[in-house]
Amino acid sequence: MKRPSRLQKGDTVYLLNIARKGVYDPDFVTRTFDGWGLKTIIGETISEDSYCQFSANPEVRLRDLQNALDDENVKAVFFMRGGYGTVQILDKIDFSKFSEHPKWLVGFSDITYLHSHINRNFNIETIHGAMLFGFATAGPRDLESMKTLLFDANPTFEFDGLENHKNTNVKGELVGGNLSILHTVIGTPSDIDTNGKILFIEDTYENLMSIERMLYAMKRSGKFDNLKALLVGDFIIPLKDNETSNCMVPEFPEPDEYTIQTAFRLLLLNFFEEYDFPIVFGLPMGHRPDLNVALNLGREVRLDMTADTLRLTYGS
C-alpha cells in the first residue's frame, strides 16, 4: 500500500467541493491551516455559485479535482462536503499523476467513492475525516486526530465507553466508510476488497430495513466471509422507524426500555451472529457535527480491545 508523504510546515493543500453545494467558515478554516503551518489553494468549486444541488456542473467539478490531483506541489486535498455528486465524475478522473505522486485525500460520506476506488485500484492510503463545512463545529478530537494522521508517523488512538462483542486483538488493513456508498459500488470497478481486512462503517438517515438490506447485499457479495473485525461508527437513524423495529428485531426490548440505537445494535448482533470476528459499537465517527475522529484508510492497524475500550495503533 502506497502512503502519501507526511505533511510538513510550508506544504500546500487544495480545498474544493466535488459534491453537494454548501458553505464553510473561511476564517475558521484559514486559522486552522495557518495554525498547522500549511498554505492553501482555493479551488474554483469553493464559491457562492452552484449548479442545481451541486457546487458546480460536472465538468467544472471534474476539472477542479483533476487540477488538485495533477499538481505535484499539492500535498493534500480537503473536500468541502458530501451529499451526492462524486459518482458523476468518478469514471472520468485521470489518476495517473496521482498514482505516481500520491497525496492525502481527506473527507467522508460521498467521498467514500474515492476512498474505495483508490484503495481497490491504486493501493493508496486516504483519510476518512471531517470536511471543510464541518471544521467550525468539529469536536475537540476530530481536527486533532486529522492533524495527527497527516503529520505523525505511527500514532495510537484510544477510545472508551464502547460496546464490544467477541472482543479480541487483531491486525489488518483498515477499509470502509459510508455504508450506503459501499453498498452502491458492489460489482463496480470501485468495489471494496474486505478479504482479511478490518471494516469500518457509518451512515445517516437510513432506517433499519435499509441498513439490513445493504448488509445482505454485502453478505451475499462475500464481504464478511474473511473479515478480521467490524468497527461500527455513528448511525443516525430516523425515529419514525419505531413503528417497524419490533418486526425487524424480534427480541426487541419492552417499550419503556426502547431506543432506536438499541434496536440497531440488536439488529447487527443478530445479523452477524454466525461470524466469529469482533464487533465494536460506539466509535465517534460519522455525520454528527462534533463526532468524526479521523481514520487512515488503507493502513495496517492493530486493535487491542476490552469489553468497552479500544486501542487503535497504526503500523509503520
Rank of each mutant, 00 (worst) to 15 (best):
K147Q: 15
T148Y: 00
L150I: 05
F151Q: 06
A153I: 11
P155S: 09
T156Q: 14
F157L: 15
D160C: 05
G161I: 09
N164S: 13
T168A: 14
N169Q: 11
K171A: 10
E173I: 15
G176W: 08
G176N: 08
G177N: 08
N178Q: 12
I181Y: 09
L182H: 02
L182A: 04
T184H: 10
T184P: 00
V185N: 06
V185F: 04
G187L: 06
S190F: 10
D191F: 03
I192Q: 12
I192N: 02
D193G: 01
G196V: 12
I198F: 13
I198K: 13
L199R: 03
L199G: 05
D203Y: 07
Y205F: 13
E206R: 09
E206M: 12
L208G: 14
S210P: 00
S210W: 03
I211K: 00
R213G: 08
R213D: 12
A217I: 00
G222V: 04
G222C: 11
F224K: 01
D225H: 08
N226V: 02
N226T: 13
A229L: 11
L231A: 09
V232Y: 04
G233K: 06
G233Q: 07
D234W: 03
I236P: 00
P238Q: 08
P238T: 07
K240L: 08
N246G: 01
N246P: 02
N246D: 11
C247K: 10
C247W: 09
F252Y: 10
E254L: 09
P255A: 01
Y258A: 10
T259C: 01
Q261H: 14
L267K: 11
L267V: 01
L269C: 05
L269Q: 14
E274H: 12
D276S: 15
P284F: 05
